[in-house]
Amino acid sequence: MKWQGGRRSGNIEDRRGMSGGQKLTLGGIGGVIVLLISYFMGGDPGAILDQMQTQGPGTATEQGPVESTPEEDRLMEFSSVILGSTEDVWAKIFENNGKSYPAAKMAIYREGTETGGCGYGQKAFGPFYCPGDQTVYLDLSFNKELSQRFGAKGEFALAYVIAHEIGHHIQNVFGVLNKTNAMRSKMSEREYNKISVMTELQADFYAGVWAHYATENSDVKLTYDDIMEGMRAAAAVGDDHIQEQATGQSHPESFTHGTSEQRAYWFKKGYETGDVNAGNTFNDPSLQ
């Protein structure tokens, strides 16, 4: 993919000069599975904290100038350009529908940071979107985990992650997240897990929609190989794959993000159609 020299987003906040800490105690293997699933792709910090015991409040203190490596500098620029690309693509889509796109923000942090409505965010949550402040939170070290631990290699893997989180922002703008969050207290955990899967797969679909239009409507230029990398990245963070790596077996009733096959399918569908209206996962009979 070609991204160097592309427009950088003005909506990134660099929090790497802040230090924070919070201890988590996990409740046995169930807690480990929750953490691992949430670590890869869009975990809801509120839901995670409901299933964990927290010791001590999160704190953050200002430090001196940010110390950064050349690799981290490159990832900062990359993330900024990808976020800028999502802004350009979604602004055009909204404009074509007679609306204005309210861009999301992105906070780049290390280890932990306060959020505007989702509690204390941590590296262990992986990248996540907080609807309270319409911000994507990302610890850049996640890129190494994504590549080395789960085999989702190539630059486009991180681009897919960012586009997926922006997909949650689109859901927030459309009012989808308000509706799904309202269902949480009215359903059993197993019933709500199905809603969660539909929500995550729709975010994958929106990531594919971004990929469909990126080359035409932004400074990021994609190739067929990039799209294949995106599908492999989506498959790498499927619930079944993550659980099997963690425990040697998978538990479909506990899936919250979808299987590897489902995640790759919905990303591909978004890319192939480019039609926002074709991503209603909540009406798909196969997901009921």
Results as ranks from 00 to 15, higher is better:
residue 141 S to I: 05
residue 141 S to H: 11
residue 143 N to I: 06
residue 143 N to A: 15
residue 144 K to Y: 06
residue 146 L to H: 09
residue 146 L to T: 03
residue 146 L to A: 02
residue 147 S to F: 08
residue 147 S to N: 13
residue 147 S to D: 15
residue 147 S to G: 14
residue 148 Q to E: 14
residue 148 Q to Y: 09
residue 150 F to C: 06
residue 151 G to A: 07
residue 151 G to R: 08
residue 151 G to K: 01
residue 153 K to S: 11
residue 154 G to L: 02
residue 154 G to Q: 02
residue 155 E to G: 07
residue 155 E to R: 06
residue 156 F to W: 00
residue 157 A to V: 05
residue 158 L to V: 05
residue 158 L to M: 13
residue 159 A to L: 04
residue 159 A to V: 00
residue 159 A to G: 05
residue 160 Y to K: 08
residue 160 Y to S: 07
residue 163 A to Q: 07
residue 163 A to S: 15
residue 167 G to N: 01
residue 168 H to E: 01
residue 169 H to A: 00
residue 170 I to F: 07
residue 171 Q to D: 07
residue 173 V to H: 03
residue 173 V to N: 10
residue 174 F to E: 15
residue 175 G to W: 09
residue 176 V to N: 14
residue 176 V to G: 10
residue 177 L to V: 11
residue 180 T to Q: 12
residue 180 T to N: 07
residue 181 N to D: 14
residue 182 A to M: 14
residue 183 M to N: 08
residue 184 R to C: 11
residue 184 R to W: 13
residue 185 S to A: 15
residue 185 S to G: 08
residue 186 K to Q: 15
residue 187 M to K: 15
residue 187 M to R: 14
residue 187 M to I: 03
residue 188 S to R: 09
residue 188 S to G: 15
residue 189 E to T: 11
residue 189 E to K: 12
residue 190 R to C: 05
residue 191 E to C: 09
residue 194 K to H: 08
residue 195 I to N: 09
residue 196 S to K: 03
residue 196 S to T: 02
residue 196 S to Q: 05
residue 197 V to Q: 00
residue 197 V to E: 01
residue 198 M to H: 04
residue 200 E to M: 01
residue 200 E to Y: 02
residue 201 L to F: 01
residue 202 Q to E: 09
residue 203 A to I: 05
residue 204 D to Y: 06
residue 206 Y to E: 07
residue 208 G to L: 01
residue 209 V to P: 01
residue 210 W to D: 08
residue 210 W to F: 14
residue 211 A to V: 05
residue 211 A to T: 07
residue 212 H to M: 07
residue 212 H to G: 01
residue 214 A to L: 07
residue 214 A to Y: 05
residue 215 T to L: 04
residue 217 N to T: 13
residue 218 S to F: 01
residue 219 D to H: 13
residue 219 D to Q: 05
residue 220 V to A: 03
residue 221 K to I: 12
residue 221 K to Y: 05
residue 222 L to P: 08
residue 223 T to A: 08
residue 223 T to C: 06
